[in-house]
Computed example of a mutant assay.
Amino acid sequence: MSKKNEYNTIEKLAIIQELKAGQSSRMEVAKIHNISVTTLVKWRHRYELYGIEGLEHKNFKNIFWPASKSGPKRGGLPLLFS
């Protein structure tokens, strides 16, 4: 999508719950909220892994992959435990 939207944590959660309700496809939900399907899937994935904190506006490369300045290398796993 060409327009960049900023959604807060509660709005992201509401969108994910709309998707989970199963009444609309990923594409339909994304189109309604003017976001890409990729963004929608990322939000859902982060919510499933990290809960509500996963939806907060943060730089995920620096939070979940602290050992690397530029994020994980291809095929790398996030560093969750020290």
Rank of each mutant, 00 (worst) to 15 (best):
M1R: 06
M1Q: 03
S2L: 10
S2H: 08
K3W: 06
K3S: 11
K4W: 01
K4L: 08
N5M: 09
E6C: 08
E6A: 14
E6M: 10
Y7P: 05
Y7A: 07
Y7Q: 05
N8Q: 05
T9Y: 02
T9L: 10
T9S: 09
T9G: 01
I10A: 11
I10T: 08
L13H: 02
A14K: 14
A14V: 07
I16A: 09
Q17V: 01
Q17C: 07
L19E: 07
L19Q: 09
L19Y: 07
K20Y: 02
K20I: 03
K20A: 08
A21E: 13
A21W: 00
A21K: 15
A21Y: 02
A21M: 10
A21F: 03
G22F: 07
G22K: 11
G22A: 12
G22V: 10
G22Q: 13
Q23C: 02
Q23P: 00
S24H: 10
S25T: 15
M27A: 15
M27N: 14
E28C: 01
E28W: 00
E28T: 09
E28Y: 00
E28K: 11
E28L: 05
E28F: 00
V29L: 09
K31M: 11
K31T: 15
I32D: 10
I32K: 15
H33F: 03
I35P: 05
I35M: 07
S36H: 07
S36N: 12
S36D: 14
S36A: 14
V37Y: 01
V37D: 14
V37I: 13
V37N: 10
V37S: 08
T38H: 00
T38G: 04
T39D: 05
L40M: 11
V41T: 14
V41W: 03
V41C: 11
V41D: 10
K42T: 13
K42W: 04
R44Y: 02
H45D: 15
H45K: 12
R46M: 10
Y47W: 04
Y47C: 07
E48W: 01
L49E: 09
L49R: 04
L49P: 00
L49G: 00
Y50D: 10
Y50V: 01
Y50Q: 01
G51D: 02
G51I: 02
G51N: 02
G51S: 03
G51M: 03
I52W: 01
I52Y: 05
E53R: 02
E53A: 09
E53D: 15
G54V: 03
L55S: 12
L55G: 12
E56L: 10
E56W: 02
E56T: 15
E56A: 13
H57V: 09
K58C: 04
K58D: 07
N59H: 04
F60K: 10
F60L: 08
K61Y: 05
N62K: 12
I63V: 14
I63A: 05
I63Y: 03
P66L: 04
P66K: 01
P66F: 02
P66D: 06
A67T: 07
A67R: 11
A67G: 12
A67Y: 03
S68T: 05
S68Q: 09
S68R: 04
S70L: 12
S70A: 12
S70N: 13
G71S: 08
P72F: 05
P72H: 09
P72N: 14
K73E: 13
K73G: 09
K73N: 10
G75L: 03
G75D: 03
G75Y: 00
G76K: 06
P78Y: 00
L79H: 09
F81W: 03
F81K: 14
F81N: 12
F81T: 11
